[in-house]
Amino acid sequence: MVPIIQVKDLTYTYQNSKVPALQNVSLTIEPGQWIAIVGHNGSGKSTLAQMLNGLIAPQSGEVYIDGELLTEESVWAIRRKIGIVFQSPDNQFVGATVADDVAFGMENNGVPRAEMIPRVQAALAQVGMTAYADHEPARLSGGQKQRVALAGVLAQRPQVIILDEATSMLDPQGRHDVVSLMTSLRKTGQFTIISITHDIDEAALADQVILMDNGKVITSGTPAEIFAQGEMLQQHGLTVPLSEKVRQGLLQAGVKVADHYLDEEQLVKNLWTLHSNK
């Protein structure tokens, strides 16, 4: 299978900066996966995301999307394959109403109006915002705006959806809504999802976690593999998921829980079976 994303040896230094934001980053991502890129602020994760659709051109290295090399000629075709939801709910809302904003990307790509109407409706239904089609952005909550942004991305029928800290400015309810939407999108199997985040609980939902620091990939693996190395996460400025903290606390207190990473559900199951086995 052709990897959906392949980057080779990416290096980039911002103007007025002495330290490179990315240093020799190479990655391969298979289609249909949910990848979480974690790292603290300034680790280079957002720079990497913006390089995937050509918003930033690498100073050296190559980006392949769906087997195609990203160049000045192919960049517009590639932007159609990759949809990005950005951090700020307000500053990416272009349209004057919800439906207008969802249609914005399709308008840019010259989709005929007759085709846009059903696609806007379908995308709004997918994110549960149909009732808000004629609302202005000022009347929506942050979580609702991010769902609209996601609908705008879905309407373009991309292969890759990148969420660049899309939940970091939301309240708990909004965050929950967006995360559960991502989970349901993963189930359709149509998209490769890349979530860039420093919310470790969100990263725990991914198939694969990539840890970045100082513009380099430190390590990658399944959430279980990464979160078992709690000390290393903390070294790179991240926290450990709640379930891992609880597990380690229990171990220290002498409770014989499992000796590997468990997500919340597994931990609860582990605890009650432990109790009933006594």
Partner: peptide, 16 residues
Amino acid sequence: AMISRGYRDGEGRTRY
């Protein structure tokens, strides 16, 4: 955000 959603200029755009 506009560039990543494919905005170039007014040419070739359709209207919703």
